[in-house]
Amino acid sequence: MTTELEPRTYRVTRADLVAYAAASGDPNPIHQDEDVARAVGLPGVIAHGMYTLALAARYVDEWAGRSGRIVELGAKFTRPVVVPAGEEGAEVSVSGVLHTDEDGVETVALTVTCDGQKVLGNPRAVLRA
């Protein structure tokens, strides 16, 4: 059985990335400092890949109505999310298709995009009952 889940859009600002860097213990300056990001050839400050994966998990938790149901979660980081300065930041859109197999195991195949382009490869979550 397959169900399409309601898409959602999340705004990401540089302030969020600073908060995430502190909370996750990943201080890599390419996620905070425009000069450093450009010096390594990026178009600007980019979100942590793990930030974007956390948004995918958030989407699943919001749909499920609580945390703790995800037993498996994974994705490839295929394209950076560039986060401009200011309150506008970037918009990340998440949608999902829920598959329930005959044993009742629920899997959400996710699509995560920024500016209409996929930023995660094969993002997927498996849920416990």
């Binding site: 969020d16 930030y51 994966l53 956390a54 958030r58 945390s67 995800i70």
Partner: peptide, 20 residues
């Protein structure tokens, strides 16, 4: 809480931590 708030994830005391 700090981790959840940075990513806008709904979380209250006693909830399991976000999956990441």
């Amino acid at each position: 809480r700090a981790f959840a708030e940075a990513t806008g994830t709904p979380w209250t005391d006693g909830d399991p931590a976000p999956a990441t």
